[in-house]
């Protein structure tokens, strides 16, 4: 009886974890090829995003919203409008934060771990997981309408900040619908992307670091 209960419990957990209908992808090569093809065609992305940070200790979540911009190569900007105006921009090897008119610029090139983090975030937000090197372990799942990729960092320095990343792709467009970044403390942050527009950005204006 105990065994049956344990098995049922285990299955119910898996059920919840994978959105009730996720199954492992059997033909990973085809999936990776398709994803690489789609990611290869993406020159830029702009979309609305909603960020939900869940904190276990407060059993509560903090919600932020804003615009997400990406342009090839290596340019990402998250421009928050709520709960306050804030921007974080990565342009090449530089990261800049801007709040209340104050800018802080950090050079990522000199820090291997920050470089790895940058690569991970960049690959996750546009779905270019083929850009990830052997420092990560990848697991693939699918449902009728979505693909789900679970990324586990192998490097201890990255693991100290991120336990795993889960990316949900829309099966029709292969666009990233949602990103979940789980920290070691089991707190996680969801980034939900909506109204995504591809290849519409014509300049680097959104990513200017001065």
């Amino acid at each position: 009886m105990f065994k049956i209960t344990t098995i049922l419990y285990f299955f119910s957990l898996s059920f919840l974890l994978f959105g009730q209908e996720m199954q492992p992808i059997t033909n990973v090569t085809d999936f990776e090829r398709e994803l690489k093809e789609v990611a290869g065609k993406i020159e830029s992305v702009e979309s609305n995003f909603r960020q939900e940070k869940f904190m276990k200790v407060f059993s509560d979540k903090m919600v932020s919203t804003g615009m997400f911009y990406y342009r090839k190569p290596n340019k990402i900007s998250l421009q928050y409008d709520k709960p306050m105006q804030y921007a974080i921009t990565i342009n090449g090897d530089k990261l800049q934060t801007l709040t209340g008119g104050k800018k802080t610029t950090v050079n990522l090139g000199s820090n291997k771990m920050m470089g790895q983090m940058k690569g991970l975030i960049e690959a996750s937000m546009i779905g270019n997981i083929s850009a990830l090197d052997k420092e990560y372990e990848l697991h693939y799942f699918q449902s009728a309408s979505e693909y789900f990729v679970r990324i586990l960092p192998k490097s201890q320095s990255v693991k100290a900040y991120i336990k795993e990343i889960g990316i949900t792709f829309d099966k029709k467009t292969m666009g990233v619908k949602q990103l979940r970044m789980t920290e070691n403390s089991d707190d996680y942050t969801d980034y939900i992307f909506t109204n995504s527009q591809y290849n519409t950005l014509q300049s680097d204006e959104k990513f200017a670091i001065r």
């Binding site: 904190m55 407060f58 928050y80 709960p83 934060t97 709040t99 900040y161 920290e183 942050t189």
Partner: peptide
Amino acid sequence: GKHLNGMMLIKRQDPETVRILVNSYFGMS
């Protein structure tokens, strides 16, 4: 001259205990 910004969250958990969390705006603890 460098500025580090984040969101500070404060809550009383019981009459004697206060919990303080600071997260980056990007979501990291």
